[in-house]
Nucleic acid binder design. Structure first.
Length: 1024
RNA sequence: GGGUGAUUAGCUCAGUUGGUAGAGCGCUUCCUUUACACGGAAGAUGUCGGGAGUUCGAGCCUCUCAUCACCCA
């Protein structure tokens, strides 16, 4: 059967993939030898909303190469796939879908109905990426595909099978009981669009054009001081009497929540007024708040005026200052980022705030949280409108810092004149502003009640694992980054005010104490700003039943009466939560409405996917082996898996972490829809086949390297596939039997011994490369072997034998050729699975599919040094003859004679063994011994003898001499270097002996070459 | 501002304990010769970012400067 001209990837790939899947070729443990060790890779779970992009295509390729390689080696492999429920992304997607299809909004649907919609969406549209992964050839065990929300109570029956949800709750409860999870009021990144806390990862800092306003905060009671500025030498540059302190800010609207003005303790300018009060220059005149001027290390004396307003509830730096100085942190905005409209009238709030600032009133967190420091005229304004109004109000009052600006304008007559105006000082400057990556709105730092993992308690094992080498991060620079982050780790905010996710398994009840004949509530009903008082009795349990059971026991012991417990919505939880029904009390509980950060569940991926906490055979795959993922999620995911695996199972989740960079376009730019430079891997697969894309990915995977994907390169590797294809077509053309599964031939022919040795070298090099995750080396080695050795030389060399009369040699060569091609298929398979499987299948019979073929173990013992030397000599001679022919423009088809003066025994043998090949490939008509090389002969210096091409009449003597002299020059430079080294006594003394020997041998060869070149030039000179 | 990395052929990049620079693509010339034009043959191109140092010897180690990229503030 004649083969097609090329491999038709578009039709063959789906067919082959189907064949693998039908055979269960990728199932956990498929092709495992008896008693094999496990080898497991966890796929970084893509978002359930995700599509395959170049980054996935890249790291999937690397994982698949490793898994296929290990599977062929007989390991008990598992490549665990799955999907991440991706809280915010999915919720957004479904909300958009509801809007687009004219359905009720999320808030109108309510939690339960909305979650139904999400599950419906997931069933219909989620997980597209798993189909796309199949197109890449990923050999994951899809039958085990995990989902981080599987087994959730909201899940429909079809999604109930998994138990990831159990794992998440189990870990939460365990960490809670161990005191490693707590609830508290902290400053977090708040997304005013989604009205939830978000993680640092979901915040994108962008440089935007911002402004810096300068305002005067008047000193209390009209006090004044001498404000002095000095230059570096201590000379006064400015002295004036001021009744204010100048503040620079990019966020004037937060002034309403200021708790103090801070200056550096070494800042002499403000020494006179530290400890005094100053006035926030905004709000009703009658209730202007006074705040203290304090010292703190945070203010930068050289930046702005050197004085900083401190708004603890709206800025991360200020928050730290406020904590140090025990300053009240007034929250000014609601969950939508509009100025608060709740609470008491401003006048009342301001009076209390003033008492606090004066030190006359104590305060606590809850009290401050309830206070609304927004004056009536600002209440309900959007934060940006509030900013504009604050600026306008302060400027109108004359409290903006002014400066003179001179500009050129045209007057009424059209003449240019200079006008100097005194205007508010506003600096235009680039500022880094945080945006929500999904919502695209400015993130507001917000002081809210959230759940935290006390990471300080669980970080140590994760750090130790890398420090003592149990887990290795590649490239090594990743380790430094890892230490830097973990050494300075912050508490991890794990609660999100979303619906799609793992609802926090904590139930709250009323705080009560028995009173004579009644109950006293220790805390009031939940209010708008602080839905869940921290002090409330809480019950953290795996199930509602457990929570009820424990709550009943708790309340019965407190109230000395039987108690019945029921569950209500948080919104329905109020004063009625304890009702006296005569013989018993009736107590309401409600569950914390928040869900867990998606990364909390992702952090459990290495074991949650394996059925933990259920007793499970699959747990043999934990810990896994290598994690391959993007450098960008080192903290958010990798570090957390390290911490969580250690905290829960006391083991590291993998021994190697391979980090790669972002995949960029050919110019090295980030891909983005707006730039229009996005390369879709599926388009590449359509155009060139998955193998080409995979080979390209492997080839660019240099450790720590920048990843630039280029279509030209992919095309080049498609061509490589065709080259391999044609090698098989060559075999068919020569009617070489293709029985399949042949043993390594016992070669007698030099040619065959040589190529078998090359196969051995290649196997060693490929394994060494893969063992050290040098995918590029593996790919390049295979490329050079297949194209540069097998196709360029071995197939060409084999032609005369295949066409010849020596049946023994022919049979041996046929067998060798088939064996060599099989080895190429086997070793290329992890990188190019489709085309190799297809070619494997062209044999008459095969014991197994290529995907399960045995990976070879032979190595350097296959190399026959003599055969190696002889074939290299032959190749060298052919190349030199070709080069010389081309140089003097001998027609490609013309056959020319070759002469020699003298051949040493080795040279003679090499010639005798290979002259047919040489004559054919170099187009040599005959070889004749001559006494002396004729005049006008091109000299070919070879080890073991000098050859000559008598091309008299064809050679342009002067240019040939010039060419030879150029070679001499180059050689001279090398000789100079070599001699210089050898003549240097220090070299002989300090260089290792093998380097010395190598250098001496090198010199000998170069000198020989030099002599031959000299002779050649001399001969030509005679002619000229 | 802090951290990490990069700078090697026209382009994109390799170059693993220091031993005297490579690949792919592109380019030039020739070739449709019986596996392959998604091919074959030949060829050109590098003061390895600048400067200094260590060494017998530096693309690789040290220092310094410059430029760029990314991460964090």
């Amino acid at each position: 059967m004649a083969m097609d001209k090329t491999f038709d990837a578009n039709t063959a790939e789906p067919r082959i993939y189907q064949m693998w899947e039908d055979a269960g070729a990728f199932k956990a443990g498929a092709n495992a030898r008896d008693g094999a060790s496990t080898y497991c890779i966890m796929l970084p779970p893509p978002n359930v909303t995700g599509h395959l992009h170049v980054g996935h295509a890249f790291n999937h390729t690397l994982m698949d190469i490793l898994i296929r390689w290990k599977r062929m080696q007989g390991f008990d492999t598992l490549w665990q796939p799955g999907l991440d429920h991706a809280g915010i992304a999915t919720q957004l997607m479904v909300e958009k879908d509801l809007a687009a299809t004219g359905q009720p909004k999320r808030t109108e649907l309510g939690r339960e109905k909305f979650l139904e919609k999400v599950w419906e969406w997931k069933a219909a549209k989620g997980g597209m990426i798993e189909q796309q992964a199949r197109r890449l050839g990923d050999s994951m065990d899809f039958s085990r595909s995990a989902f981080t929300m599987s087994g959730a109570s909201s899940a429909p029956d079809t999604e109930k099978s998994g138990n990831f949800h159990d794992a998440v709750l189990q870990v939460f409860v365990k960490l809670y009981n161990d005191g490693k999870i707590y609830r508290g009021k902290r400053l977090v990144n708040w997304d005013p669009h989604f009205e939830t806390a978000i993680s640092d990862l979901e915040v994108e800092n962008r440089e935007v054009d911002g402004h810096m306003w300068h305002f005067k905060y008047p000193l209390a009671n009209g006090a004044t001081y001498e404000y002095v500025e000095k230059d570096e030498d201590g000379n006064e540059t400015l002295r004036e009497t001021r009744d204010y302190i100048s503040i620079a800010t990019t966020r004037p609207e937060t002034m309403l929540g200021d708790g103090a003005v801070a200056v550096h303790k070494d800042d002499e300018r403000y020494n006179p007024i530290v400890g005094q009060l100053c006035e926030i220059p905004v709000g009703p005149k009658a209730q202007r708040r006074l705040i203290p001027i304090i010292t703190d290390p945070y203010p930068d004396m050289t930046f702005g005026s050197g004085a900083v307003k401190i708004t603890g509830a709206h800025d991360f730096n200020d928050y730290e200052v406020a904590k140090r100085g025990n300053l009240p942190m007034y929250a000014l905005m609601d969950t939508k980022g509009t100025m608060r409209a709740d609470g008491k009238p401003y006048a009342e709030e301001a009076a209390v705030a003033q008492a606090i600032a004066n030190g006359e009133q104590t305060f606590d967190e809850a009290m401050i949280a309830a206070m609304n420091m927004v004056p009536e005229e600002y209440r309900g304004l959007d934060r940006f409108d509030a900013r504009a109004k604050v600026i306008a109000d302060i400027t109108a009052e004359g409290l903006a810092v002014m400066h003179d600006v001179t500009r050129t304008v045209k007057n009424d007559d059209g003449e240019k004149v200079e006008v100097t105006e005194t205007v508010p000082m506003v600096e235009n400057k680039k500022i880094m502003q945080p945006f929500g990556d999904r919502s695209n709105v400015v993130i507001e730092p917000a002081l809210t009640d959230q759940w935290f993992v006390d990471t300080a308690q669980i970080v140590q094992p994760a750090l130790d694992a890398v420090r003592n080498g149990e887990t290795k991060i590649m490239p090594e620079s990743g380790e430094k980054v890892y230490y830097h982050w973990l050494d300075n780790i912050e508490p991890w905010c794990i609660s999100r005010q979303l619906w799609w996710g793992h609802q926090i398994p904590v139930w709250y009840g009323p705080d009560v104490v028995p009173n004579f004949g009644g109950i006293t509530f220790l805390d009031g009903p939940p209010d708008e700003t602080s839905a869940v008082p921290t002090s409330r009795p809480s019950f953290c349990e795996l199930t509602e039943e457990e929570a009820i059971k424990n709550a009943r026991a708790y309340y019965e012991s407190k109230l000395n009466k039987p108690v019945t417990i029921s569950i209500c919505e948080s919104s329905g939880f109020d004063n009625q939560t304890v009702a006296d029904a005569g013989d018993h009390y009736s107590v309401n509980l409600y569950r914390d409405p928040d869900v867990l950060d998606t990364w909390f569940s992702s952090g459990l991926w290495p074991f949650g996917t394996l059925g933990w906490p259920a007793e499970n055979e699959a747990m043999k795959y934990f810990p896994g082996d290598v994690l391959i993922t993007g450098q960008d999620i080192l903290f958010f995911w990798v570090a957390r898996m390290m911490m969580m695996s250690n905290a829960v199972l006391d083991e590291n989740p993998f021994h190697t972490i391979y980090l790669h960079q972002l995949v960029r376009d050919a110019k090295g730019e980030k891909m983005s829809k707006t730039k229009g430079n996005v390369i879709d891997p599926l388009d590449m697969i359509d155009a060139y086949g998955a193998d080409a894309l995979r080979f390209s990915n492997a080839q660019m995977a240099a450790l720590g390297g920048v990843l630039k994907i280029s279509e030209d390169r992919i095309k080049g590797y498609r061509n490589f596939g065709t080259k391999l294809w044609n090698a098989f077509s060559f075999a068919d053309h020569y009617e070489i039997p293709n029985a399949g599964d042949t043993a390594m031939p016992q070669a007698t022919q030099t040619l065959n011994k040589w190529i078998i040795g090359e196969v051995g070298k290649t196997r060693v090099a490929v394994d060494a490369a893969l063992e050290t995750y040098r995918f590029n080396d593996a790919a390049n080695t295979l490329y050079a072997f297949t194209w540069g050795k097998v196709c360029d030389w071995y197939l060409e060399f084999s032609k005369p034998i295949l066409q010849g009369e020596d049946e023994v040699a022919k049979m041996e060569t046929q067998a060798t050729l088939r064996w060599v091609l099989d080895q190429a298929l086997i070793m290329l398979h992890p990188i190019m699975p489709f085309i190799t499987e297809e070619l494997w299948g062209t044999a008459d019979t095969r014991a197994k599919m290529l995907v399960h073929a045995d990976w070879p173990t032979y190595g350097a013992e296959l190399v026959d040094a003599d055969a190696d030397a002889e074939m290299n000599w032959t190749i060298n001679l052919i190349e030199t003859v070709r080069s010389n022919r081309a140089q003097v423009h001998v027609p490609a088809g013309a056959k020319v004679p070759l002469v020699f003066t003298e051949l040493e025994a080795k040279g003679q043998a090499a010639w005798d063994n290979n002259h047919v090949l040489i004559q054919r490939l170099a187009r040599i008509e005959s070889l004749k011994k001559v006494d002396a090389l004729p005049k006008g002969c091109v000299t070919i210096p070879m080890p073991g003898g000098t050859f000559g091409l008598p091309l008299e009449g064809l050679i342009d003597v002067p240019s040939e001499i010039a060419r030879l002299e150029k070679s001499m020059q180059k050689l001279g430079k090398e000789l100079g270097g070599l001699r210089g080294r050898l003549n240097n006594p220090k070299f002989a003394a300090s260089a290792p002996p093998e380097v010395l020997a190598e250098t001496q041998e090198n010199l000998r060869l170069r000198e020989e070459e030099e002599a031959q070149l000299k002779a050649a030039i001399a001969r030509l000179a005679e002619l000229g």
